[in-house]
Design a protein around this nucleic acid. Structure first.
Lengths: 251, 251
DNA sequence: ACAAAAGTGTTATCGCTACACCCATGT
DNA sequence: ACATGGGTGTAGCGATAACACTTTTGT
């Protein structure tokens, strides 16, 4: 038995690797680092956007990247993601989930780092992004004109995007990108941005109102130079009730 | 700069962790192990099944577990999954993909091991499972009567199951669980097992035949004591053609 | 002839698409 | 009055769910 930090690690038999026999000491298996990379989506009202950092340190200094960090030795991976998200947005509660993990041997130029991709949705009106010690700049980028990213972050971002597009159709998560109060046409614009396809105004309204997930809060827009729209909020409790009875969200 | 195997690793500033300042030397970040755990699905003709190993070594010696292994220092994670799958089934080509990663600090009793969950679909008639050095036994288990598994493997299996159920509806992957030649009712039985709901025979036939993805190979069942059914095969090329024209598989 | 599973046809309903139209507000 | 976006109504089409029915083989 060998020491690894404060834990005991079992020895391992010589391994059959690539057809040949290599003796790989067990300690060599415990030399990975694990990171989390968090794709943070926001909605401007017109476009879906993603929060990127400009790297302040090598490698890829000066390049745009998806915010992320190494997981601490005694930190759960979900907690690491929450930490990164919190540090950058100032928010403590947001929708987030894993997208996909990346573990190419040479994906990180200075060590073997396996990264776990996360994606998260935030309400841009509530957050207040601030750069941290390891980031020079923090900026929202429209998804249809992204720069070339550091590492394999273009892939990581693409994986998150794919997840978002699939999930937004089957789970009522789009609301996490909107203010608590929103109009039906704002909601429609959001879906159009995420899915990249137009919706018929009338049909969209009907479909959503028929699902009975929105609460009419009896308020209207102000300071608009046209007929002010009704404001709605998403009714999470109602969604849970309906789901228990077999309802499936679908857009 | 510090050495990590044959690579140079950048130093890291003291970290702000849980509100306190800890000095964490960069080397402590490079003490994770990464593993892959592969949920292998097969179809008996009646039931969806999963291939489990009985652990031959501690920890959890004697308990059933999802097959997996530590990722080698210079091995891509997908390659590691392919290796585990190949060693166990004797197959070199199979459908597989990531499901979800698990990284609770204490998920592995003897070290910090982050695992990447995979799920794969194999044709039971083609493979020939064999136990390896680290497994005493290898056995197919029906999904509706699973034993308690080692580690957090019940969660890993559940995550794979969820993925499979979602994907099987939108991608034509079910064929990977069937022999190359199959009848429509075998296909129907497969979908019923995976999704846990019955399908109407007539409607199922129509839906599938209308999609035009099956090739009638002009053969019939033999040695059945009733009218022999036509055999079909999945037409991958046709699927790709249709997909390019905007077709979306759906069941 | 019968059992058993393969395979076909029909109808009613529901949801969706497409499109036309009306309404309320600020300038 | 008009521009602008908010909001409503409806007809037709297509997919699908439900169910009854016919066909082909082995025994």
């Amino acid at each position: 038995m060998l020491e690894n930090g404060n834990r005991i690690v079992a020895e391992r038999e010589p391994a059959d690797y690539n057809g040949n026999i290599y003796k790989i000491p067990i300690n060599d298996f415990y030399k990975f680092a694990v990171s989390v990379d968090c794709v943070i989506f926001g909605f401007s009202g017109d476009d879906l956007e993603v929060l990127l950092i400009k790297r302040g340190t090598e490698p890829f200094k000066g390049k745009w990247a998806v915010p992320g960090d190494l997981v601490y030795p005694f930190e759960n991976i979900d907690d690491a993601a929450k930490r990164v998200l919190g540090e950058l947005t100032g928010l403590t509660d947001m929708y987030f989930d894993q997208s996909k993990s990346f573990g190419e041997v040479n994906r990180h130029p200075i060590g073997r780092v396996v990264t776990i991709g996360y994606f998260s949705l935030i309400k841009k009106d509530e957050q207040n992004p601030k750069a941290s010690s390891w980031a020079e700049q923090l900026e929202w980028h429209k998804l249809n004109k992204l720069p070339d990213l550091a590492f394999d972050h273009n892939q990581i971002l693409e994986a998150s995007m794919e997840r978002l597009r699939k999930r937004v159709r089957r789970q009522p998560i789009g609301f996490n990108l909107l203010p608590d109060k929103f109009t039906l046409l704002e909601l429609k614009a959001l879906y159009e941005s995420v899915l990249g396809e137009p919706f018929d105004k009338s049909n969209f309204r009907k479909k959503f109102l028929d699902m009975d997930l929105l609460t009419d809060i009896n308020q209207r827009q102000t300071n608009v130079k046209h007929r002010p729209a009704k404001l709605f909020s998403f009714n999470q409790k109602r969604y849970e009730e309906l789901t228990e009875r077999g309802f499936n969200f679908s857009i």
